[in-house]
């Protein structure tokens, strides 16, 4: 918090009036990404985002915003600035190498029909 204190001596009397000047008080609450596990056995899934002052508040707000009808049994909150995302414009370089490797799939291998359980 950035605070300046100004002391004004009023000529008319000996009272010193302390004026607290707030500069740039309103800081916006950061953005958080919310992940919810809908039931045990399932992974946490991205549900959306919200603003909160800190992680505890983000958890409480997430409870109210995303689980009003028992949609979850566990919540993760991550401040959005901590997420690094891939750039869709680079999807070519990033994902193409997987496309010509058909031998990674079971159907690539020719076996006679008599072979069972495989």
């Amino acid at each position: 918090m950035n605070q300046d204190f100004l002391v004004l001596c009023l000529e008319s009397g000996s009272v010193a009036v302390l004026i607290q000047k707030h500069t740039n008080m309103s800081k916006n609450w950061p953005l958080w990404e919310i992940f919810v596990r809908s039931k045990n056995g399932l992974e946490h899934r991205h549900f959306g985002s919200l603003h909160a002052a800190d992680a505890d508040m983000a958890l409480e707000n997430a409870r109210d915003v995303y689980t009003r009808r028992s949609e979850g049994v566990s919540i993760w909150v991550v401040e959005s600035k901590n997420i690094t995302a891939s750039n869709p414009e680079h999807n070519g370089e990033l994902f193409e190498p997987a496309q010509d490797k058909v031998y990674r799939h079971p159907t690539f291998y020719d076996l006679p029909d008599e072979v069972k359980h495989m």
Binding site: M1, M25, S26, K27, W29, A53, D54
Partner: peptide, 9 residues
């Protein structure tokens, strides 16, 4: 809102 932010900081 300001108080919550100040507390968080």
């Amino acid at each position: 809102r300001d108080a919550a932010m100040a507390y968080a900081e």
